[in-house]
Amino acid sequence: MPGRNEAPPRVLATEAAASLIEEIRADHPDILFHQSGGCCDGSSPMCYPVSDFKLGERDVKLGEVAGVPVYISGSQFEAWKHTQLILDVVPGRGGMFSLDNGRERRFLTRSRVFTEDELAALGD
């Protein structure tokens, strides 16, 4: 846990997620995550080759997990900024355009609400 005045990370990854990221990076070295906003693939974290995804000017970088940047749309960030996102892996198929598709495991976002002290450190 970060110290009292140290801002906590906005995004983390479980060991299972880090392992799947490593597997995907063996095939696609430069990737990013974008937290989906709920259209075609619900609210799944989507994994793309950097060259295949155009970031919007309102997208917010939450941080990095296993050396991979994680973004979210500005409007969704406003709704979720009080939570820490935790990338995890569960059995199943990934989003139809996400690089975890076809690997029989998919990324899933879990979350927890930041404490008052953590929110204060984040400046929210």
Score class of each variant (00 low, 15 high):
Asp124Phe: 11
Ile31Lys: 06
Asp88Arg: 05
Arg25Ile: 03
Gly3His: 10
Leu87Gln: 00
Leu85Asn: 07
Val90Asn: 14
Asp100Met: 07
Arg93Thr: 15
Gly67Pro: 06
Glu22Gln: 10
Arg103Lys: 14
Ser19Gln: 11
Gly37Phe: 05
Arg58Tyr: 12
Val50Gly: 10
Gly102Gln: 07
Leu12Gly: 08
Leu85Thr: 00
Gly37Met: 01
Val50Lys: 11
Ile21Met: 00
Val50Tyr: 12
Pro69Arg: 03
Phe107Met: 08
Leu99Gly: 08
Cys39Pro: 07
Phe114Tyr: 08
Ala26Asp: 09
Ala17Ile: 01
Gly42Thr: 03
Ile31Pro: 09
Met1Tyr: 01
Ser19Asn: 09
Gly74Ile: 00
Asp59Ser: 11
Pro29Cys: 07
Pro91Asn: 15
Gly63Trp: 07
Glu23Thr: 10
Met1Arg: 11
Gly95Leu: 05
Asp117Val: 05
Arg25Pro: 04
Met1Asn: 08
Thr109Ser: 12
Ser51Glu: 10
Cys40Leu: 03
Val65Gln: 14
Lys54Val: 03
Leu108Gln: 13
Asp59Tyr: 04
Leu99Lys: 08
Glu78Gly: 01
Asp27Trp: 06
Ile86Glu: 10
Trp80Ser: 14
Ile24Trp: 05
Pro8Thr: 03
Ser51His: 04
Cys39Val: 07
Ala121Ile: 04
Ser98Gln: 07
Ala79Trp: 12
Asp100His: 07
Asp52Met: 12
Ala16Gln: 09
Gly37Glu: 01
Leu20Phe: 00
Pro45Asn: 08
Asp41Ala: 11
Arg25Met: 09
Leu62Tyr: 00
Asp88Met: 05
Ala120Met: 15
Phe77Leu: 06
Ser111Gln: 06
Ala17Leu: 11
Pro8Met: 02
Ser51Phe: 01
Glu104Tyr: 01
Ala121Lys: 04
Thr14Asn: 00
Gly63Arg: 10
His28Leu: 11
Leu108Tyr: 11
Cys47Trp: 02
Val90Leu: 14
Gly67Glu: 11
Tyr71Ser: 12
Gly38Gln: 01
Phe107Lys: 07
Asn5Val: 15
Glu64Met: 01
Leu122Ser: 05
Gly56Cys: 05
Ser44Leu: 09
Ala121Glu: 06
Ala17Arg: 02
Glu64Gly: 02
Pro8Trp: 02
Val113Glu: 14
Phe77Ala: 02
Lys61Asp: 07
Glu6Ser: 05
Asp41Gly: 04
Ala17Met: 11
Gln76Ser: 03
Ile21Asn: 07
Arg58Met: 12
Met1Glu: 09
Pro8Lys: 00
Arg112Ser: 12
Asp117Met: 06
Glu78Asn: 04
Gln35Glu: 14
Ala16Trp: 01
Asp124Ser: 14
Cys40Gly: 04
Arg58Leu: 13
Leu108Asn: 11
Ala17Thr: 06
Val89Cys: 00
Gly94Val: 06
Pro29Ala: 03
Cys40Arg: 03
Leu122Trp: 05
Glu15Trp: 00
Gly3Cys: 08
Tyr71Ala: 12
Arg110Trp: 10
Gly42Ala: 02
Phe97Lys: 13
Gln84Asn: 01
Lys54Phe: 00
Gly42Glu: 02
Val65Phe: 15
Val113Asp: 13
Cys47Tyr: 10
Cys39Gln: 07
Gly63Met: 08
Pro2His: 13
Leu99Phe: 10
Ala7Arg: 12
